[in-house]
Design a protein around this nucleic acid. Structure first.
Length: 235
RNA sequence: CAGUCAUUGAG
């Protein structure tokens, strides 16, 4: 019933549930918080959380994670930490999702070292970082302009036998593009192809923006036509 | 697959 991916619908149903004195369940709240979080309405998410507690509805670990994430998107790093603590006080062992969400908060706040710290805490807790963890670290370094750090994370992934995902490549690409290092960017794109990944519109858009910023309009046209051709014919 | 990761977007 609530599996709608549609925020408008979800909201309407949610309101109706309350009107009809039907207590929303923890799962319902989690979904709603998640919804607000993704829609950059961290504020509403936090408010919902308060409402939830005042109704004596017990938040579970997913609820907290969703909330941390909501804060992360808004760069409310301190709020995120606060919630993370609440999570622990509630007797939950933070899992990889929770850590990742928290790292995301630091990353967005422009604190790559904070993120790195969490990364190592996570390892010390015997919690295996997953692909998302690495991607977030990549992003954290990339945003801060620490391309060396980003590159290190990327290499580390490969060393561990984790195939970098499309996102990983994108993030690394962006790290270099912020430095205006076009050559490196082009290199990465070809590396991607060698790994058997097809540059998608995400990548092409990123390249377009890069060239645009640098005023390399000829390159832009090349990319454009590549896009139009549906590109990458095997031969 | 209840919760975590990617590009751009003039207030």
């Amino acid at each position: 019933l609530l599996k709608r991916r549609d925020s408008q619908q979800a909201l309407a149903i949610f309101e109706r549930m309350k009107r009809e004195n039907c207590e929303p369940t923890a799962d319902t709240y989690t979904m709603m918080i998640n919804l607000y979080g993704k829609g950059n309405k961290s504020y509403m998410a936090l408010e919902l959380f308060r409402e939830m507690k005042s109704r004596k509805c017990k938040p579970n670990i997913c609820t907290y994670t969703a909330l941390v994430n909501a804060c992360a998107r808004d760069g409310l790093c301190e709020k995120a930490e606060e919630i993370f603590e609440q999570l622990q006080e509630a007797g939950h062992e933070p899992d990889v999702y929770a850590y990742n969400a928290l790292m995301e908060a630091y990353s967005r706040a422009g604190l790559p070292y904070g993120a790195a710290e969490i990364f190592s805490i996570m390892e010390n807790m015997g919690c295996e970082p997953d692909r998302a963890s690495y991607n977030i670290m990549l992003d954290a370094y990339g945003r801060a302009g620490l391309y060396e750090g980003a590159q290190a994370v990327f290499d580390e992934m490969k060393r561990l036998g984790i195939e970098p995902t499309m996102k990983s490549h994108m993030l690394l690409l962006l790290a270099y593009s912020r430095m205006g290092n076009v050559l490196k960017c082009e290199e990465i794109v070809s590396q991607m192809q060698e790994s058997g990944l097809t540059p998608d519109t995400f990548v092409l858009n990123a390249m377009m923006n890069l060239y645009g910023r640098l005023g390399q309009f000829e390159k832009m046209e090349e990319v454009l036509t590549a896009m139009e051709n549906g590109a990458f014919k095997p031969d």
